[in-house]
Nucleic acid binder design. Sequence first.
DNA 1: TCAAAAGTGTTGTTTATACACCCATGT
DNA 2: ACATGGGTGTATAAACAACACTTTTGA
Lengths: 230, 230
Amino acid sequence: MTPKATHPSSPSAQPAAAHQPLVAVLVVIFTVAEGNLKVLLIRRAIEPFRDWWAIPGGRLEPAETLDDGASRKLVEETGVADVYLEQLYTFDGLDRTAPQGAVAVAYFALVDYARTRLAQRTDWQPAWFPMSALPELAFDNRTVLEYALQRLRYKLEYTNVAYSLLPERFTMTRLQQVYETILGKKLDKRNFRKRMLSLGIIEPTTESLVEGAHRPARLYTFSSRQPIIL
Amino acid sequence: MTPKATHPSSPSAQPAAAHQPLVAVLVVIFTVAEGNLKVLLIRRAIEPFRDWWAIPGGRLEPAETLDDGASRKLVEETGVADVYLEQLYTFDGLDRTAPQGAVAVAYFALVDYARTRLAQRTDWQPAWFPMSALPELAFDNRTVLEYALQRLRYKLEYTNVAYSLLPERFTMTRLQQVYETILGKKLDKRNFRKRMLSLGIIEPTTESLVEGAHRPARLYTFSSRQPIIL
DNA sequence: TCAAAAGTGTTGTTTATACACCCATGT
DNA sequence: ACATGGGTGTATAAACAACACTTTTGA
């Protein structure tokens, strides 16, 4: 959803160019891999905070909407489109190097690790970091990540956004692991299965996955791959 | 809460001044009065949409944060401070008169009608409108109002934000009317009282209010006048 | 036949809903 | 004494939490 609007000009408005804050978009990209919730960070190539890790982002292109800018950034960094992407919050810039001020419109996205192909750039070095082991971050990007994580945890409880973290077909255990990883706690297997099925967010397929020296696991799919509030 | 952050400059960043979108703040100010949920609108004094009704807002002053700008607007229009005020969403400008684009950071506020003193300005004419009988609005401000109303309804269910709509002391019936007005439906009196008290969001005082030819009503206060997630 | 993960039901507790009468007051 | 809004409890249904054993497979 991207409603659009703008402001009435105020009588106290300044001359157009003076002190107009810069606008940037940030995209917090989450994935679940190897039992960890991971976030994509890039290494800054320029001052300020040169060589520090930071949330990917940048300025809007001419005539680009915020949503479009966020989508573009996401594709540039990971190669994926059509994933869950929502506006998170708009932060005041702490970038003291921008004397006119800076405003960062943050988004967050959920991607299936297996589908991502990170941009290979020597100046940029995008890489996944576990949320539990973050490096030191430029600006106050840590605050942004914590805010995004909190929002993700809430959304997981009352929406089907997990669809964006998993492939077309998956086992119930795999889905449960994704929930457990993000929420940071163990869940009861029977209650979890009951809930997922009774809420109708996933459906069994006729296929199963033979994986090891044990009973094969039924494969499931999401009933909808559009965001749904339960 | 106002976490702050900014962006890493991108290698694809444009020259600093070109196509930089304008930033404005919008403040959706709600109150409950006369059995209606009302919103404060102003009449635009300038083009575009001159003489149309619109959500109050404007540009930031030099070195002003978004939260500060929203607070300032709120005080300018209503004279009240220390009320519930939160960032709502950032909208893409549809203001085609701004060729470089425009971004509107929308906030919403809840005020006690009895405490407000509207600015008396001939060029500005702030006035309360029931959400159920809005005039035609400038830009697509209607979308913003609907988004704000939806958020308010959600918040009412799982927070104590109603404190910002009522005076220090109030009757249980008054509180219930506020909920009913905003949610747009009748609530059961006994269940409502049980819930408010068991969640601990309000507390009885020793006082009561003698009002008419019937039993006096006990007065209550909010346990906290800070926002609390229940 | 053993190890490993998949799969499956019941019970108790908490939370939400529905619903009707008595109470204190002013006129 | 009556009209007005204030105030109270109980029974049912629904949602959630706790908990242990059997099944299917490969080695």
